[in-house]
């Protein structure tokens, strides 16, 4: 069954998460994707303050569709994570505790996840209408000029995600597929 997590995601909470766990996240998370990451990392490398405190926070790799009147947000599913690989280690070193996306990560990201004790979650790619229903409020807090790529502060309730890479570096893309292949024998 699913584990429930309330934000912020402390190092202690990360200890209970294992690759393959179904998790429901409640609380404040932030969206950021390609262009926003480029800016965040430029600030971090220049030793400047980021637009939000990323300590024990989770970044959702997502750029939502526009919202209709009365909706907090449009459809919002994960984007493919590997494009954020060049930036993720720097943010993890600054205290970022979790990332939500989809797809594989590179070795450097996995090593940094293990080093700092973080976690990589996958949301179900393409299930964006369903996930929008978990978002109770959304507000652009930085880089409004980037449109869909702006950084948004979201309040989510029971956002369904799966632990792909846990703090020990176990990778559910490998474990899941080999578990399935074992059922064939």
């Amino acid at each position: 069954m699913s584990k429930k997590i309330n934000m912020p995601l402390t190092k202690d909470k990360v200890k209970d998460l294992k690759a393959g766990d179904n998790v429901l996240i409640t609380g404040t998370i932030y969206t950021a994707r390609d262009a926003a990451h480029k800016r965040l990392v430029e600030l971090a490398e220049a030793g400047k303050k980021l637009p939000f405190n990323i300590e024990d926070q989770v970044i959702y790799y997502a750029g939502p569709a526009p919202s209709k009147e009365g909706q907090p947000i449009g459809s919002v599913g994960p984007t493919t994570s590997y494009r954020m690989d060049p930036y993720a280690p720097i943010l993890l070193e600054k205290g970022l505790r979790g990332m939500i996306g989809k797809g594989k990560r590179d070795e450097k990201v996995i090593e940094t996840i293990k080093k700092v004790g973080a976690v990589y979650f996958a949301a179900i790619g393409g299930a964006a209408a369903l996930m929008a229903k978990c978002v109770k409020s959304a507000e652009v807090i930085a880089y409004e000029d980037l449109g869909a790529e702006a950084i948004r502060k979201l309040y989510v309730e029971d956002l369904p995600v799966i632990v792909v890479i846990d703090k020990d570096g176990n990778n559910y893309y490998e474990v899941g597929q080999s578990e399935y292949l074992k059922t064939l024998r």
């Binding site: 997502a62 750029g63 939502p64 569709a65 209709k68 909706q71 449009g74 459809s75 919002v76 599913g77 984007t79 179900i124 790619g125 393409g126 299930a127 964006a128 209408a129 369903l130 929008a132 229903k133 869909a148 369904p160």
Partner: peptide, 23 residues
């Protein structure tokens, strides 16, 4: 996961919103 994908398509249709944010 297949169940969720089908449920998502139903929500998109009922609520008239895109199935995926990447339109």
């Amino acid at each position: 996961i297949l169940n969720i994908i089908i449920e998502n398509a139903d929500i998109a249709k009922d609520e008239q919103r895109p199935m995926c944010q990447d339109t």
